[in-house]
Every structure is written in structure tokens, then in C-alpha cells.
Design a protein around this nucleic acid. Structure first.
Lengths: 152, 152
DNA sequence: TTAAAACCTCAAGCTAGGTTTAGGTAAAGT
DNA sequence: ACTTTACCTAAACCTAGCTTGAGGTTTTAA
């Protein structure tokens, strides 16, 4: 059985994040801790899963705010079960599927459009901002693609 | 034939971006202009395509810096041809394909892992930061997913 | 001809997702 | 006992990708 209580440094090391990131997540309400008699943070083991999920979700382009929302669907009074986590995951899977199709459409548009003569500026997705392509802000952050790129 | 010269406001309106964004892109070296006698920016029509490409590329998670690099492969002395643009596009397509596979792997990992019992913490991709999943920074920005999400 | 709309520059501000620094306390190893 | 390591808080700083504001000029429309 895993140990019942974790210090911030151990959690950080185990999860491959900085202590400062854990402070940050706590401040944003994504994880919780209690304090020992010397005011140091102590964590229940399930914080490890939370952090793993945070990191995985970020790679899917999900913002901390959205992750927080999703975490709100987890039970407050008990350690989340397998089913709790799977429910959460299934929502994200739908989103991922949507995102994947979107990327595929983008790739196809790129193929069809980027080099087109654009005889018809009114119908070209590249030229027309009001298309599916239009953006309102600078969306979520995606993946570290170092693994998927030739070089950086 | 399209008009031979564009003001910043007209370009902005046509492309669905703010004037401030055009200033910004110019400052970053992504687009060029010359000035009229009253010091106002004037653009050649091919700036429209550049901006469209910038916006499309951003939706694919490509940073302005990377877009700038790609633009460096375009000819300096003449308006880029269809072939010039297609060469640029084909590189990005490969990257997009890689990114799509990565997302698919993530989705599968999520399915397999998020709710697992994690009897084996040493082999679970979600628990182990040194996996493919590991990130060094907060990668490129992806897509406005407003169109691909249930609600926001 | 005059007023409004568009343009200019430069600097500061904003959001996300953290990191860094400073100054101080607690816990652990020797 | 003492020294090192870990931890604490608060505030400042960082990058990307812009936007906003201030103060002034140019173009355009009536």
C-alpha cells in the first residue's frame, strides 16, 4: 500500500513537476492539502492521480480552468473511484475526438486551399475568416510536440 | 483583378483581424508594408494570403515564430507562387499528421489508463512523467475549439 | 472647409501557466 | 548541536500573442 501522506517535495518529484507548480495548482483550486504542525503541506495519495490527470489533460489542450470544472464533478467527501474518473475521461474523449476531426479537416483544407489560385475568394476557407476556421481568442494550449516534430 | 494596394484598415476588415494585430505581425517580421507620403501603411494584395495562412497555421498549433521560419522559405524578390505555398503547406501537413496521431494515442491512453486501478504504478502512462506524455514547457497554442465543443 | 474617421508611435496592460527571488521557518542528517 | 535541506509566503517576473490607451497626424466625406 502506498504511504498515507505525502510532502510537497515528494509529490513534485514523483509527478515530475516543480513544487511551485503544486503551489500554483492549489491556489487555483485544482488540488488540496492540509498542514502539519509546522505549517507544511501534506497530501493524500490521490493527489498523485489528480496531478497525472492535470498533466494528461493539458497535453490534450484542456485549460486549467476546464480541468477544474471537470474536477468539480468528482465527489468531495470521498476518494474518487474508478467510475468517477472514467466518467470524467469519457467526456474528454468526446472532445478529443472532435478535436481530432477538426485537425483532420484543417489538414484537408490546407491541402486543398493553401496553393489554390483562389479564383473564388468568396468560397476559399483560407481567405474567409467567417468559416469554421475563425477564432475568437488564442485557444487552449496544446501538447508538447517535441516528440512529434522533426527537430526544434 | 484585385486592387493593387491596401490600407491597414481594409486588410484588417477583409481578414477578420484587428489593425493592432497587423502592426504586431509586421513588427514580428511576418508581413511587410511600405508607407505612403503621409506615413500610412500600404500593402500588396499578397498580404491577404499571408495573413490567411498565419491564421490557419495558428489553428494548427503553429507558433508565430515557426510561421515566420516557414515564411523565410518563400521568395523575397517576387510574389510567392502556388508552388511556393504548396511546399510550405506540405511540411505543415506532415506535422499535422504527427499531431493527429499523437492526439489519437492520447485518447487511447486516456481510455486505457485514467480509470485503471494502477496496480502497477511503474507502467501506467498516466502516473509516469517520463513517458511520451512528458512535457517540458507549455507547448504551442491550439485551435479555437468553440466549434468543436459542446458548450463553453 | 471643417469634422469625423482612419492612421501613426510608443508604452503599458492583459491572460495563461507557471518560475524566480527574497526573507524567513521547520525538519532531517551527522 | 549544528548544518543542510526542505519548506513557507508574497510579490515580481517570464513568454506568447495580442489589445488598449495616450497624444498627435492624415485622409476622407459632407
Amino acid at each position: 500500500m502506498a504511504e498515507a501522506t505525502w510532502s510537497v517535495g515528494r509529490v513534485a518529484k514523483r509527478c515530475g513537476v516543480n513544487v511551485s507548480a503544486l503551489h500554483f495548482y492549489e491556489q487555483k483550486g485544482l488540488i488540496k492539502s492540509w498542514r502539519n504542525c509546522g505549517n507544511q503541506r501534506r497530501y493524500k495519495p490521490d493527489v498523485l492521480r489528480r496531478i497525472s490527470v492535470i498533466k494528461a489533460a493539458q497535453k490534450m489542450g484542456i485549460s486549467l480552468e476546464e480541468i477544474k470544472q471537470a474536477f468539480n464533478s468528482l465527489p468531495d467527501n470521498r476518494t474518487p473511484t474508478t467510475e468517477d474518473w472514467q466518467l470524467l475521461a469519457s467526456n474528454w474523449q468526446q472532445m478529443l475526438d472532435a478535436r481530432i476531426s477538426y485537425m483532420q479537416k484543417l489538414r484537408d483544407d490546407l491541402t486543398g486551399c493553401i496553393g489554390c489560385g483562389c479564383l473564388s475568394m468568396n468560397s476559399c476557407p483560407l481567405y474567409n475568416p467567417d468559416d469554421v476556421l475563425s477564432a475568437k481568442g488564442s485557444g487552449p494550449v496544446l501538447l508538447d510536440q517535441s516528440s512529434a516534430r522533426p527537430q526544434t
